[in-house]
């Protein structure tokens, strides 16, 4: 017994950044200001932000067409076919080369980025909203609703997701009524829908466990005593207090969805040509691998760099918001 105590006393616990920061004289800063300050010091996260902003800007500006204002970074139309220059390597006219139909790769990359990033963005926001609602309600209400919702979440987590995604996206895309309703946009809407349906569970579980631990805290009791409604308790108190893990999970989710969309489009079950996406630009690569190996390079690099940047940002956010988080 004595040896154990003395050994604990002998080794001083390492100084964590929390203590370090507490020891420094600081002006009073809000939780968010402190987080921002920590994030700024995270060099990789800032690099990630720059890369992301770059990708978003260039693909948003691929071609702008508002009223009389017409300009764009993309040198060609995204579906402009020129069979005279098919499979061209990098040339002054086509900086990144062309594909089998002579379409300019740079142009298609910019337009594809637009589709891929907005699909991932929308699907992320939708699945986070669903996840937050289900997790928060299950955690707060408890009882029967909790059992049903979390059982459902568990079941969704053990599905063979990929085959189901293929079935769902193929069937939905072929429904005549939906085709008439959405026309060209159908494959984009279907992919957003199926990714959302199979993508909200992680956030739901996260919010659920966070709400469970917050539910019994004193400030909740105080709020309840003041007569706040259940809706107010959930969305004004519980959700904001579990915001840190939600934000981190959202960034990581976005990265995962970018890869998901690319994979599905690559397999021919996502965004359908002629609309370009980073994934479907890789679909034909295997057929033309001998003629133009560089066709595989650029779209893959775009996906890779985007997801890498998001992960850096996610790591930075986790450290900045709450270093104890384990996601």
């Amino acid at each position: 017994m004595a040896t154990k105590e003395s050994s604990i006393a002998a080794v001083a616990p390492p100084i964590t950044w929390e203590e370090e920061e507490a020891a420094l004289p600081t002006e009073s800063l809000s939780q968010w200001q402190l987080a921002w300050r920590r994030l700024r010091r995270h060099r990789l996260a800032i690099l990630g932000v720059f890369v992301l902003v770059f990708f978003i800007m260039v693909s948003a500006l691929a071609s702008v067409n508002i009223g009389s204002i017409r300009f764009g970074l993309a040198p060609y139309e995204f579906d402009a076919i020129d069979l005279n220059v098919s499979f061209s390597g990098p040339t002054p006219e086509h900086l990144f080369g062309t594909d089998q139909l002579g379409r300019d790769t740079l142009t298609r990359l910019l337009h594809a980025g637009r589709i891929s990033l907005s699909v991932a963005g929308i699907a992320t926001i939708l699945s986070v909203i669903i996840g937050v609602i289900i997790g928060a309600v299950a955690g707060y209400v408890g009882g029967r609703a909790e059992t049903i919702l979390m059982r459902f979440t568990d079941i969704m987590l053990t599905l063979p997701v990929l085959p189901l995604l293929l079935i769902a996206s193929k069937s939905l895309r072929e429904m005549v009524a939906l085709q008439q309703l959405f026309g060209q946009l159908l494959s984009v809407i279907v992919i957003i829908a199926v990714i959302t349906i199979f993508g909200w569970m992680t956030v739901a579980r996260l919010v659920y466990s966070s709400v469970l631990s917050l539910r019994e805290r004193e400030f909740m009791e105080a709020t309840r005593a003041l007569g706040a409604s259940g809706k107010r308790l959930i969305f004004n108190h519980l959700v904001p207090n579990s915001l840190a893990p939600i934000i981190v999970a959202t960034t990581l989710e976005f990265g995962a969805i970018v890869v998901y969309e690319a994979t599905l489009s690559f397999l021919g079950f996502g965004i359908m040509p002629p609309t370009p996406s980073w994934g479907n630009m890789l679909t034909d690569v295997q057929r033309f691998v001998l003629r133009s190996p560089w066709m595989a390079f650029y779209p893959g690099m775009c996906i890779f760099l985007t997801v890498l940047a998001i992960n850096f940002l996610g790591d930075g956010l986790r450290d900045a918001l709450d270093p104890r988080l384990k996601i």
Binding site: V259, P299, G300, F304, N311
Partner: peptide
């Protein structure tokens, strides 16, 4: 981070 299907390609 790297998409595995692309790594395969």
């Amino acid at each position: 981070v790297v998409p595995h299907f692309w790594l395969g390609l």
